[in-house]
Amino acid sequence: MSGHVTSKKIYFAVFGALMILTAITVGVATLDLGQLNTVVALAVAGCKATVVIWYFMEVRHARPLTKLTVVGGILWLVIMLILLFTDYISRDWMAGPQAW
């Protein structure tokens, strides 16, 4: 069988990293960085998610097709968000009374 058995050490190290990132995200939230607060929070959460996907979910040993599925799922979410925001960002660009 092709399953790759990862050593326990790596899993413990990943857990440690996730704990540290959790501490960072809470710590940063207490500082007032304006708009950057959200950016940092999402960046840290993104890092944590990546670590979980890459190590706990063993995508690093997965087939290319699995990797493609992961990327595809995230990409579709991004597509949805971007097209949604084309509306919400530009709704009040038109000056004066709204046409409808």
Binding site: L83, D87, S90, R91, W93, M94
Partner: peptide, 11 residues
């Protein structure tokens, strides 16, 4: 015609 931004409509 729903109130969506016209710019999004163009896209």
């Amino acid at each position: 015609v729903s109130g969506q931004s016209v710019y999004a409509g163009m896209v």
